[in-house]
Design a protein around this nucleic acid. Structure first.
Lengths: 199, 199
DNA sequence: CCATCGTCTATTGTTAACAACCTGCAGTCG
DNA sequence: CGACTGCAGGTTGTTAACAATAGACGATGG
């Protein structure tokens, strides 16, 4: 259970969750001092989190002007990004192929479990976060660390727009199918389930 | 000429250039204090630059352990990244189509000119930087700002490995052809030249 | 009346001191 | 002999004070 060790990471996670949950309207200006006092920390880690989230695509940064919440991409871009994302995940899964190591599988199982908790709790922001974390864990388990940063860039912009989670229990079931395919080492089924899940 | 206004940006640009020029071996550990004293600034902006370059894919960051220079991706990943990059640039150019505004065209021309200078000076790191900047300017001119961050992620990892610049004068000529197609508003030729250039 | 300049305030950028943390090594105990 | 514990040194993480900047507002002069 990788608890965030540094304050910077805690602030980053918390702020990302708030942005993902839609707590701020797109275009809203975020102030360092305000968030620092709300989190009970100094401006330093908040600045670091701003830079990080700006690089991840959640916030837009302008020198001496602060950061604003990004607008979600339009439908054309969303469709294209989905297409790229499918290619990346397929490529990584195929590159090193199955099966993954027992250790890696355990990490994926753990990520799936966190997703289940988030779904049960009906926490939309947490579901988004755990959904992405689940896929990221798979990519890392397959040796795709070279592509994870770019993949994350694409996904984070998408997450700003995601609203397709009608029934959160289904979200968990969909990912559980992906996990089972991974567990059983069946490449064809895994690819099939992944493509069904990424949309 | 957008001179970097903040120290953070100057440090980031300088450090990125040094990494691109191969001044550090992959895996080398970079120390905040060392670089801070070399640049004559405090550790703050250096830390910011580390975070930024880590997010861009040039450095690897580990909490409480510092940053190391990334290893270039293997050939399989390079080929796949090139494939993605082609799709992205094609998509953006097609999305809003030609022609681009006079103002945007002027910015592309300026980027091409900087590339020419770098080629003439035989400065490999500058050529890499200006090459990427040229393409980025085109993407922005075509309204692809939503995809630029992910595109940049992919390209930066590639730039770590690039060694295909035998004759730098050819590099400029290739890009000049892209620019002329853009200028004349010929979409088919532009796509053709872009595909020839991205490899 | 309008444009321009200067001041004022809020906010970000930078710095240096201090705290927390990892690592390696020596010493100690089983 | 091997593993464990506790220092010691160095590096990163955090903080708060200080500096620099952008934008707003009003005074001034044409």
């Amino acid at each position: 259970m990788p608890i965030s060790r540094t304050i910077r990471e805690q602030v980053t996670v918390q702020l990302r969750d708030e942005v993902l949950s839609g707590a701020f309207a797109p275009g809203k200006v975020l102030r360092e001092a305000e968030l620092a006092s709300r989190f009970g920390v100094s401006r330093g880690p908040v600045r670091d989190a701003f830079l990080q989230l700006a690089n991840e695509g959640y916030l837009a940064y302008e020198p001496n002007r602060g950061v604003t919440v990004q607008h979600p991409p339009d439908q054309s871009d969303r469709e294209f990004i989905t297409k790229l994302r499918r290619q990346i995940e397929l490529y990584v899964v195929r590159k090193f192929g199955l099966p993954v190591s027992a250790d890696a599988l355990e990490q994926v199982r753990s990520a799936l479990d966190e997703l289940r908790v988030a779904c049960t709790a009906n926490n939309l922001a947490a579901v988004k976060r755990c959904d992405l974390a689940f896929h990221e864990t798979i990519l890392l388990a397959c040796g795709g660390e070279n592509l994870v940063p770019a993949w994350k860039q694409l996904c984070s912009r998408m997450a700003l727009a995601y609203e397709r989670f009608d029934v959160l229990a289904d979200v968990h079931e969909e990912h559980a199918r992906v996990f089972r395919a991974l567990e059983e080492g069946d490449g064809a089924v895994l690819e099939e389930e992944l493509m069904q899940n990424i949309r």
